[in-house]
Amino acid sequence: MESPAKHEVEENDPRPPFAATVSRVAVAQICLTVGYAAAEPAALRSLADIGARFVQALARSGASVAAAHGRTDANLLDLVRAMEELSLPRGFDGAFDPTRPLLGSSILRELMAFVRSVEEIPFPRPIRRESVRASVSPSFAQMGRETPFGHVPRWLPCFPEAWERSRREGKGRGDGREGEAKREMTKGVRLLGEGERVLPADRERVWFRLEYCGGSCGERKTKRISEEVEERGGKRR
């Protein structure tokens, strides 16, 4: 469920989200390869939206199958099951047999044939990856460390560095003054690091307005432009 605040923000923003724009371009490319020469904007938007919903439905179904089997990560079998589930309305070869092997599913065979038959057309531009994954700290098992407490399982993310350090120092010296100073320092560094990393994917546009005000006021014209740019720059900051 989306929070109402987020919804409001999306409503106020006239531009479509970045992901929707990217999927529209990809869908337009697919339409071109199919044989279309052009597309109505509304039709293209709808098809792109439906494509995105298809991916999300597939992912949700796959994730729920994985969760039903007691796993957090989905695997190929979950994905095949999700794909079969999504193609049930149209039906597929071998759907009548409940004991069919999942890896020999006709849907996978169709996908193989599709990949063989379709020309490879990559997306025209490289896309900047959102650093969502980077912000997730690695688990104790991934770092190869032991957990400080017995009741903390190893698959949980590591404790913050500063916390562990202060704990160690607190134990060694009794007073945590130095540890506190260090903690603040590391906090500062981390904030700086995050500031560098988390660049908004879509930034505010800057535009210039040229106004004609007669031949004699060339200076005023340039001044006005620079003022406007400054004003916008100030707003952005």
């Binding site: 992901a19 990217v22 999927s23 990809a26 490319q29 697919i30 390869t33 494509g51 995105a52 991916v55 999300q56 992912a59 990949v115 490879e120 057309i121 990559p122 997306f123 896309i127 900047r128 990856r129 959102e130």
Partner: peptide, 13 residues
């Protein structure tokens, strides 16, 4: 293989 739908978009969804 490079699909027309970019990896980044699929990963996002």
């Amino acid at each position: 293989y490079t699909p027309t739908i970019p990896d980044e978009l699929v990963e996002h969804y």
